[in-house]
Design a protein around this nucleic acid. Structure first.
Lengths: 213, 213
DNA sequence: TCACAAAATGGACAATCGTCCATTTAAATC
DNA sequence: GATTTAAATGGACGATTGTCCATTTTGTGA
């Protein structure tokens, strides 16, 4: 039976990463110590140094892994819908506010890392390249929509709509962070689409009906 | 000369709080140790325990102080403008995105504390009560505006506009956090008003002109 | 089954953490 | 100027941090 060794090795690596994420979500970054991590992963103290060369690298890796999961989730959703601009936008908004993506654990992790982003180049770096891909996707969708309105500068409109929409979604995440129990997903979605409908009255007018079937 | 004693005492207390904020802004929460704080404040090790009973209390106090400053800044701005709903909204948006309030130091501090909010009740608590006041202010302004449109449910519209606007501003702060150097204040403002203009075409149509005189 | 090597262990280590208090400093009162 | 007392000092303290390596375990190939 070949590859068993590497399989275990990989499983342990993964365990460490997930132990970090669990700990960050539950106790915060400042209480996520080496002792805490190895206890959760049920591995020995030396493993962190062996697999990642040190705690900082492991934490960076965990942050990378976490953001990868977020974007993979969004991209997977896009596969399940049509190709019109409106459909893309609706799916991204729904996905970003869905239970699968916007939940207590993810929000805790995300904001914990954000808080450290400014002082940890590695954490800020990957967040950027990934973010650019999503932003581009949203922009293209809005650009297709904006062109249909025959406005003077459709790309400018699309740029603003992209910026505004992503900013509003960010803000909804903050709402959820601060009030996870009173947060209302449907309300958040309704508001985003109310703004979008105001900008593109011919496109997002039906979105409410589509969203709640 | 009476009160000199208390004056020094108060100055030292303040020094400690500001040392925490400086350190959090520059090095992050996890590197803000007792040694770091007293070195910046140029005070002795025992002062933290003497004045605040421990490091955690001092950090909580610093977070409270910082958020107090933010809201005081916003409220001060509101004193300098008219009383119409539109004027209030414009002033809050402008203020929230102004250099005086949205700058590298404040953003660093704000997000550092946010990252810890979930695991530190004290930090989450005061943030809420203050936030509620601002939210109420924005809501009242939008409610006055919405009523003029003769819509079916003006309060619902105002609620959504409030939620959406504050969310978008939050998102702009995140943009600034992640890209402080490429962030464009004017663009951020333009986008917020573009969304508002789409919702209230008779009110925020002139805002662009008002903003850049 | 045995020898080899990769992987995992767990404790030693110096460094740093936050707390606390015996001592010193200096403002306030007489 | 002497006395009182609140404020400030700075080091001792045990606990905890992350790193690292000598040792043990265990899968792999001969």
């Amino acid at each position: 039976m070949t590859g068993r060794r590497q399989e275990i090795r990989e499983r342990n690596r993964r365990s460490l990463i997930e132990a970090v994420l669990d700990s960050v979500a539950e106790k915060g970054i400042s209480e996520t110590s080496v002792s805490e991590i190895i206890q959760r992963a049920e591995l020995s103290r030396g493993m962190i140094h062996l697999h990642f060369g040190g705690k900082d690298n492991l934490v960076d890796e965990a942050a990378r892994y976490s953001s990868e999961q977020y974007y993979d989730g969004i991209y997977a959703l896009l596969e399940t819908t049509g190709q019109t601009g409106q459909e893309h936008i609706e799916m991204i908004v729904r996905g970003d506010l869905s239970e699968a993506i916007l939940n207590k654990k993810n929000v805790s992790i995300w904001y914990a890392f954000r808080g450290e982003a400014r002082n940890r180049a590695a954490i800020a770096a990957f967040s950027d390249t990934r973010d650019a891909k999503l932003r581009n996707l949203v922009f293209n969708a809005f650009a297709r929509i904006a062109k249909e309105y025959g406005t003077e500068h459709p790309n400018q409109v699309a740029r603003d709509a992209t910026h505004g929409t992503l900013a509003m979604l960010e803000g909804m995440w903050t709402d959820y962070l601060l009030h996870p129990d009173s947060f209302d997903r449907d309300e958040a979605m309704r508001i985003v689409f109310r703004f979008l409908r105001a900008m593109f009255p011919e496109h997002f007018d039906l979105s409410g009906a589509l969203l709640f079937e």
